[in-house]
Design a protein around this nucleic acid. Structure first.
Lengths: 216, 216
DNA sequence: CTCGAAATGCGACTGGAGTCGCATTAGGAT
DNA sequence: ATCCTAATGCGACTCCAGTCGCATTTCGAG
């Protein structure tokens, strides 16, 4: 407000000196607000109703800032997904692989068939498929999920229930894939029996050693 | 044409006589052009590059007509998908369920990992997930695929390889779901080994009777 | 405390998607 | 052959997502 301070004179050649010197600052607060607003918007209005303007209005951050830092709706979704990747799902430990896998698939079933619980992850996953940034965030998201859930298979290996060397993440993928397949690819209705069957089939294949290197 | 005379003088109240008397006409030709243009556009520019204007320009059909009849990009994709649902995939018949399923999953793998072959179905599936019309078309598309491919399981039942009452479509879903799961949900890379493992796991579960009503 | 630079706020501008009313064309029926 | 009507062509209009240049604020450094 005092004077202008228009970088006069100094046009010396110092291009790549400090590319990103001080990113930390209020940016952190802004980002938190924006992520929260994005999640709230995507939950309230679904993916198709998600607009940059709405996130700007809800978060109090200017629209141009959102476009500058996130590049658009895609980036917002990707960032929200990244922030959501840390949250842990309840991981069962019943002492039996089949039971554990059933719990996992039932949990997936319960979350995504509940309009309240499922709207946010559904919208997030749908939205993330549309951009490279979103796809990368989605990969990281599921990688974290798989790695986390692989523990049930690893415990089964320890118990001697599964052959050593079994790829735990692959077991989890086999168990949950039919559910996500229906939810996000074919759009077929999902029921509890399908969830159980998928878990049982995965457990069966895992016990047969199909997910171990020597099982080939 | 003889008896059914046109009541010219009769101004009697006949509101719901012929709401949509003659839809057939050049509409068929227009539709064929539009579907072809939509497929060409979605193949050439991907889903994000698909615009109504581009389809209008390529097909020679006016933009307003496209919006009137198809409602937008979503409807165009849905119609293109419906038109594509009839095309048959090569269906193996090796005499062994495991081999047949492996052929199927390898075919899926081959198509979707080939940039040339896979771009159209990939874009179509991605696009279809964004609207109700597209989702409905996608369901029909996969229903046709499943019903078609279920034949390999039904033949296995006839051979005595699978228990009677086995849900053939469910077997196919189990075999292919892990592939589509990676392709369209997690975005993980797809390899031939994963395709084989999915087929083997499905065959194993099917033989164990998990997809038969008594298998519960 | 003061200064510098980056990040944000701000509003106007642009471009294209989508809509509307009307003129024209084409197919079906008498 | 001729009329009737639905379907299409046409262009202008609206509206909103996304961009740009500049003013302002805030954080880090000295």
């Amino acid at each position: 407000m005092s004077d202008r301070a228009p970088q006069p004179g100094h046009a010396q050649p110092e291009p790549p000196r400090t590319p990103t010197p001080r990113p930390g600052g209020r940016s952190a607060r802004v980002r938190a607000d924006v992520v929260a607003a994005t999640l709230a918007e995507v939950t309230a209005r679904g993916y198709d109703g998600l607009t940059v303007d709405a996130v700007a209005a809800r978060s109090g951050v200017h629209k141009a800032t959102l476009y500058r830092r996130w590049g658009g709706v895609d980036g917002l979704v990707a960032d929200a997904l990244t922030a959501s990747a840390d949250q842990a799902w309840p991981l069962p430990d019943t002492g039996d692989l089949g039971q554990d896998l059933r719990r996992i698939t039932r949990e997936v079933f319960a979350v995504f068939t509940d309009p309240e619980l499922g709207s946010t992850p559904t919208a997030l996953i749908t939205a993330a498929q549309r951009s490279d940034a979103g796809a990368a965030a989605l990969r990281a998201f599921f990688a974290a999920r798989h790695q986390q859930a692989a523990a049930v298979a690893e415990r089964a290996v320890t118990r001697g229930e599964l052959p050593p060397g079994t790829d735990g993440a692959e077991v989890v993928r086999a168990a949950t894939a039919p559910l996500y397949y229906r939810l996000f690819v074919t759009g077929e209705p999902l029921d509890a029996r399908a969830a159980e069957r998928a878990a049982d089939a995965a457990a069966l294949a895992a016990r047969a050693g199909l997910f171990a290197p020597t099982g080939d």
